[in-house]
Design a protein around this nucleic acid. Structure first.
Lengths: 209, 209
DNA sequence: GGATGTGAACTATTTCACAGCC
DNA sequence: GGCTGTGAAATAGTTCACATCC
């Protein structure tokens, strides 16, 4: 399954869970496409890829589809995520995940400022950066979220890699050097805003009315 | 120019600026590719697309290339960016941009909590959400950063759209409904972590030595 | 009639590979 | 020899369009 398909499945699921909460039992590909911002054909192909099938009469069953997507996305025994860098951004990410569904919890946070060690921030216990490898190994951490400054990012992922972490979300504005079996999702704020800037209207003021 | 090309150009530039600071005058496509995590052929094609040319003998001139990329990415009179939602994440983004180069400054922040109005947070003046349209129009804001909760995101972009904002960076976990001439960059933390989780090693412990 | 499932067509993006240059 | 610039080939991703079903 390619990253793009996984990305859309994650979006589909979020929409479906909301619709389920609203009491919807079935929907059609074109409805899901409209809510997800894609095309009906693409939705059908994505569901085909995960082997999920609907009926021409009623469409797709919401609950069954949520389960089918979960079977693809979720790890059977939950995912263990750790965050490195408890600065402004790190804290915001911790707050963001606080109180989400248990399948996605940050099990530990780390910071080079050892004054934070032992504290619980937004529901997550902090540890000294010197314990990064040991604790990641002990907890069986699979995913690392990197919210340290750019200069410290490579060292953090190297340490976590050695401790068995195989997938990262990188908020630091650096390209990480990693072997190809390690997966990195870039979350680069500067680059993203620059991109948005490029696509902002170039023509003069274009004031609507 | 497609979003992918723009994205890579932004990454190239960041690397080049650092190399320039280190005193490097020329580099080859394969060097830039290694630092950016791509292939030499792709770097050459990207530079070809922006009409920049190097020499087989020395490669590409760093300073000239930085300028050439800037000519593509940057707006001549700077980019005006506003942020809506001064919660944990919004503050982190404001802090992130504080003290970066002036071409990319957040000119105003907004929050529904009117107690924040008038305060300066991480170098950015806050305003009441009720002034969103007026101030965006007055300042000529082109890019909006959405860091409000999911339920408030659509209303925020609708208001900003009417005030002439034509491009957004959306941190809220919702698919925004917008006309096709409006550009949206999604920064969806949940989805990204789920994706990273999917690509985390599925096999057992796989402990290296 | 309007939906699904899917081979085939199409489009976008990347890589190959090589002529030309230093 | 190793580099750039680039047409051509290859690959990835999406949409079309239609047989089939309710």
């Amino acid at each position: 399954m390619t990253p793009k398909v996984i990305h859309r499945l994650s979006i589909y699921r979020r929409i479906l869970i909301e619709l389920q909460a609203q009491g919807l039992a079935y929907l059609y590909s074109h409805q899901l496409a409209a809510l997800a911002g894609g095309t009906a054909a693409l939705v059908r192909r994505d569901l085909m890829r995960i082997g999920f099938t609907g009926s021409p009469a009623r469409g797709y069953e919401v609950t069954a589809l949520i389960d089918a997507v979960g079977k693809v996305l979720d790890h059977p025994e939950g995912l263990r995520v750790a965050l490195v860098g408890v600065g402004n951004l790190g804290r915001a990410v911790l707050a963001y995940f606080l109180g989400r569904k248990p399948n996605l919890t940050i099990v530990a946070a780390f910071d080079s400022d050892s004054a934070l060690a032992g504290r619980v921030i937004h529901g997550c216990r902090c540890h000294a950066a010197t314990d990064l490898a040991r604790i990641c190994r002990e907890l069986g951490v699979q995913v690392g979220i990197i919210t340290v400054p750019a200069a410290a990012a490579q060292a953090a992922v190297d340490t976590m890699r050695e401790a068995g972490v195989s997938s990262f979300v990188n908020f630091a504005p650096v390209a990480l050097r990693l072997p190809p079996d390690v997966h990195v999702q870039e979350m680069d704020i500067t680059t993203t805003v620059e991109k948005a800037g490029y696509f902002a209207r170039r023509d003069g003021e274009a004031k609507p009315i």
